[in-house]
């Protein structure tokens, strides 16, 4: 198996994943204020589970990043990639999950069910990565298109459809909360960078 180019291992992967980890916790409020949220325990658990799945599907080969046959410096750069991957993955789950309310619980349960389902049926790298893109894409649409439309003053078709489906619940109970319009664009870029970075990871070939 060819070794990973040192530039990718020492610069591209850690910097991309650390950017995801840092920007994934940024929350831009309607007034323009920014605050940074560390990932909750649930996001860390989901992230650790996904890393196990990625290794099982061969989407990441931990042995190519951290192994007794590598030098100390090589293992140090590999460890940074693995830690940044865990932090970035946790922040992606945190970013794409509604902050609170009914949908927070529902989406977390859905993530657990999807991870368990993928674990039960053995899958390969390509299918797992496409599946992740679909799951994260759907979570993005739910949080930043549907819920944002509901929390934004003024009606829209999406808001009307969704509020009809969950009639009787308040916005707070559902988990909708106002955010800056910039937040959706920022989340799109962060989630996209994360998915692209997953393709760059050293895989079992």
């Amino acid at each position: 198996m060819p070794p990973l180019p040192p530039g990718r291992e020492a610069f591209t992967l850690p910097l991309a994943l650390l950017t995801v980890a840092g920007a994934g916790g940024a929350r831009i409020l309607p007034g323009g204020a920014v605050h940074f949220e560390p990932p909750p325990i649930m996001a860390l658990v989901l992230a650790a589970s996904l890393l196990v799945l990625l290794a099982r599907a061969g989407a990441i080969a931990p042995g190519r990043l951290f192994a007794p046959t590598r030098t100390g410096l090589e293992n140090a750069t590999g460890a940074v990639v693995l830690i940044a991957l865990l932090a970035g993955t946790a922040q992606i789950f945190h970013l794409l999950t509604p902050t609170r309310g009914l949908l927070n619980v529902s989406v977390n349960i859905l993530f657990v069910a999807l991870l368990l389902n993928t674990f039960a049926r053995k899958t390969d790298r390509s299918h797992l990565l496409w599946s992740l893109a679909v799951v994260f894409g759907s979570a993005f649409v739910l949080k930043f298109v549907v819920l944002d439309a509901m929390a934004t003053p003024g009606s829209s078709v999406a808001a009307w459809l969704f509020s009809s489906a969950v009639e009787g619940l308040t916005l707070g109970a559902i988990g909708a909360e106002p955010a800056s319009p910039v937040m959706g664009y920022a989340a799109f870029i962060v989630a996209g960078l994360y998915l692209v970075t997953l393709w760059w990871l050293p895989a079992d070939e």
């Binding site: 040192p6 650390l18 916790g25 940074v80």
Partner: peptide
């Protein structure tokens, strides 16, 4: 040399991680 790339990359990554940690700790607006 690959060793130099790795060493510089490690320092840059750790500095970047430290800056992100600082931002989370101090929450600048």
């Amino acid at each position: 040399p690959a060793t130099a790339i790795r060493a510089v990359g490690l320092v840059v990554s750790l500095a970047y991680a430290g800056a992100i940690g600082w931002v989370y700790l101090h929450q600048p607006q």
